[in-house]
Design a protein around this nucleic acid. Structure first.
Lengths: 131, 131
DNA sequence: TACAAAATGTTATATTATAACAATTTAACT
DNA sequence: AGTTAAATTGTTATAATATAACATTTTGTA
């Protein structure tokens, strides 16, 4: 695995330490004291980190989370669970699911090389709060 | 099925006729001659149309497509194929897939009530162009 | 017809993301 | 070490996406 550049490392560390997905401008705010002052600096680092699979973008939330699958270099098969109440996001690492989806072929004959799946619901904590 | 309001109908018709997903501001531009002048009018109609399942949002593209599944009232189980070359988007209607995902339970014990899946690849046309 | 819910209209602004250009650093080679 | 190409950084400006707040009108229904 290649080394990260200065900005990439700063931003990855922040995301990796965060218990929740971070948004780009929240990241910007947090790294300004470390010399990263412009949105583009953040977005460039994010793009690269996504490209090399160190982080994933949660598309429905426009937010970024560190890859929780230690063997994941390049993200071609991502799945997440999202609690619609507390917004907790967890990466799903289930080989049955990934096998099923990686092998999935639709009748349109298209060959897929990547997928992203987002499940929504209530996490255990939030379910018990509501009852 | 409830009837659509004036703005909702105008915007749904536009999306429904489009061969490709439409973005909010492209919709705005197209309906200005019909009296819809502000972004918020577009977003409100889009929100409602998504809520009642007449359209879906393609999250990775920030664009909207008419539901291509005639029996789909409320969108709790959506899957799309996206060509990364020509950007053609098709709704996948595969009962095996939807059964598998609707029944999916992860080890975290979370109960899901909705999912969205986006597959990426090259459509047949684009595959043959490249070869 | 009166009431509540939904939808509309409007202005302003917040949030997310990229264009364009210049300078610097890094990595790989001779 | 010196050369070069690729990657990264820095900077300003702006594009694209989306919502807040408030007033009014329309619609469904008791």
């Amino acid at each position: 695995m290649q080394n990260l550049s200065k900005n990439q490392q700063i931003i990855f560390d922040l995301i990796d330490k965060s218990p929740e997905p971070l948004k780009a401008y929240s990241i910007l705010f947090n790294v300004q004291k470390r010399g990263i002052k412009a949105p583009l600096q953040v977005y460039r680092a994010l793009d690269k980190l996504v490209e090399i699979g160190k982080i994933h973008k949660i598309e429905s939330r426009n937010a970024f989370i560190a890859c929780q699958n230690s063997s994941c270099q390049i993200s071609k098969a991502t799945a997440f669970s999202i609690c619609e109440s507390c917004e907790k996001v967890t990466e799903i690492n289930n080989s049955n699911l990934s096998k099923y989806l990686t092998g999935f072929k639709d009748k349109n004959g298209m060959k897929y090389n990547k997928y992203n799946l987002e499940f929504f619901g209530l996490c255990k904590k939030c379910v018990s709060k509501k009852s």
